[in-house]
């Protein structure tokens, strides 16, 4: 059974391209447009991996990750954060919130695929 990945980014094009790449590699994908929207999607359904941007309107990625970790169904879900080179401080905050994996923007779809593949098989 294909594994499910949640991608959270306020940029529609990022969501679309990442979804296309992940679906192409055999994953199921659902998307959230910001932290708040994504949190609403965490309704107990099995999600194997979360990919989240940091800077987003309504609820930023760090708050979202911290909130997700509080839900029993997602307390062990692997999380990839989308960061920028200049965001060391954000990275530390995200780490404290529970994220351990990073992909630096701008990235190519292949880079995302390889990061995902390290964490979960399709």
């Amino acid at each position: 059974m294909a594994k499910t990945i949640l991608i959270v980014d306020d940029s529609a094009s990022v969501r679309q391209v990442v979804s296309i790449a992940l679906k192409g590699a055999g994953y199921d994908v659902i998307a959230g447009v910001d932290g708040k929207d994504a949190l609403a999607k965490l309704n107990g359904q099995r999600i194997h991996l979360i990919i989240s941007d940091v800077n987003m309107p309504n609820m930023d990625g760090i708050t979202f990750v911290a909130e997700a970790r509080k839900l029993p169904a997602y307390k062990f879900t692997p999380i990839i954060m989308l960061t920028t080179e200049s965001q060391e401080e954000k990275k530390r905050q995200a780490q404290a919130a529970g994220a351990r994996a990073w992909v630096t923007k701008p990235f190519q779809p292949e880079q995302m695929l390889s990061a995902v593949a390290k964490l979960i098989a399709p």
């Binding site: 094009s13 990022v14 923007k105 701008p106 990235f107 779809p109």
Partner: peptide, 15 residues
Amino acid sequence: FRAAHTLKGSSGLFG
């Protein structure tokens, strides 16, 4: 700044 930043990020995805 964020506008420029997002533009860069998305452009990267499309190569």
